[in-house]
Amino acid sequence: MVSLRPLASLPVVGVVADGRTYRHLLYLLVAMPIAFVHSGVFSFGVVFGIMLSPVLVGLVVLLATLVAARLLAAFERWLADALLGTDLATPDDLAEADGAVAGARKYVDAASTWRGLGFLLSKFWIALFGLIPLILFARGVPLLTAPARYPVTVQFGEVNGEPATWAIETLPEALAAVPLGVAAILVACHLANAAAYAARRMAVALLDGPTRDGPAGESERVTVDGEPSGD
């Protein structure tokens, strides 16, 4: 019996049939609004913390910002596990502390606090790059489905403040739009996977906590996207 090759394993076009591609697109779709939340929290915390530091209230605000960064990093850890296929461990490097000063200091001393903060600040660039595949995918779908929808007007953006559109009114025009839509979707899928790969590597490096098998980062050897990493 001849075994058929899985569609997802085909070169170039296989990404369209791979479910991970659409999880990556979803990750990029939510990345930008989440990045704005990160930016708002840090901008408020740092600016007001520094302004109010002479009256000590600012120190409390800065500490609260670090605690908020740990909470946001925990959410990013869950999001990476759900959509990027990682298996990240929760950091457990917060030391036992007695008293308010020691309790505050443990957040400053924990390496996971600063690694998580580094991930949150770096993710903005992943979110910014992720707009490219999202826009390409959004433009490619109307072109691909033009034969079933014409007459239709596809908008590509703006040129000198004026919308750049293509009015598809005939069947030949609709058929000509299909290969353009296919190309746009393929490029979008590959770019989305590339951005997700970068985000996954960042998450493993900066969000992974110590595991029973070793230090932070060891869990990457167990699974990445559900498969052995090949180390």
Results as ranks from 00 to 15, higher is better:
Pro6Phe: 04
Ala8Tyr: 14
Ser9Phe: 04
Leu10Cys: 06
Val12Lys: 12
Val13Ile: 15
Ala17Lys: 06
Ala17Glu: 08
Gly19Pro: 01
His24Glu: 10
Leu26Tyr: 14
Leu29Asn: 10
Leu29Ala: 15
Ile34Met: 14
Ile34Glu: 07
Ala35Cys: 13
His38Arg: 09
Ser39Pro: 04
Ser43Ile: 09
Val46Arg: 04
Val47Ile: 13
Val47Cys: 09
Phe48Ile: 11
Phe48Ala: 12
Gly49Pro: 03
Ile50Leu: 05
Met51Thr: 09
Ser53Tyr: 02
Pro54Trp: 01
Val55Arg: 01
Gly58Leu: 01
Val60Thr: 14
Val60Ser: 01
Val61Ile: 15
Thr65Gly: 10
Val67Cys: 10
Arg70Gln: 10
Ala73Glu: 01
Ala74Pro: 03
Phe75Met: 10
Trp78Pro: 00
Leu79Val: 10
Asp81Lys: 04
Leu83Ser: 11
Asp87Ser: 14
Leu88Val: 01
Ala89Thr: 09
Pro91Ile: 13
Pro91Tyr: 13
Leu94Gly: 00
Ala95Thr: 14
Ala95Leu: 12
Glu96Pro: 12
Ala97Asp: 14
Ala97Glu: 07
Asp98Arg: 08
Ala100Lys: 00
Ala100Glu: 10
Ala102Gly: 02
Ala104Ser: 07
Arg105Thr: 12
Asp109Ser: 12
Asp109Tyr: 09
Thr113Asp: 09
Thr113His: 12
Trp114Pro: 04
Arg115Leu: 13
Gly118Gln: 10
Ser122Glu: 05
Ala127Phe: 03
Phe129Ile: 10
Leu131Asp: 03
Ile132Asn: 01
Pro133Leu: 02
Val141Gly: 10
Val141Tyr: 07
Leu143Trp: 06
Leu144Gln: 00
Thr145Ile: 13
Ala146Met: 05
Pro147Ser: 09
Tyr150Cys: 03
Pro151Thr: 09
Val152Thr: 15
Val152Cys: 10
Val152Asp: 13
Gln155Ile: 03
Gln155Leu: 00
Gln155Val: 05
Val159Asn: 13
Gly161Arg: 09
Ala164Met: 12
Thr165Phe: 00
Trp166Cys: 04
Ala167His: 14
Glu169Trp: 02
Glu169Gly: 14
Pro172Phe: 06
Glu173Thr: 03
Glu173Gly: 07
Leu175Met: 02
Leu175Arg: 05
Ala176Glu: 09
Val182Pro: 00
Val182Lys: 00
Val182Cys: 06
Val182Met: 06
Ile185Leu: 11
Val187Lys: 01
Cys189Leu: 11
Cys189Pro: 03
Asn193Ser: 11
Ala194Lys: 08
Ala194Asp: 09
Ala195Thr: 02
Ala195Phe: 05
Ala196Arg: 04
Tyr197Ser: 13
Tyr197Asp: 14
Met202Ala: 15
Ala203Pro: 02
Val204Cys: 08
Val204Gly: 11
Ala205Gln: 13
Leu206Gly: 07
Leu206Gln: 08
Gly209Asn: 05
Pro210Trp: 14
Gly214Thr: 07
Gly214Pro: 06
Pro215Trp: 12
Arg221Leu: 13
Val222Asp: 10
Val222Leu: 14
Asp225Cys: 01
Ser229Asp: 13
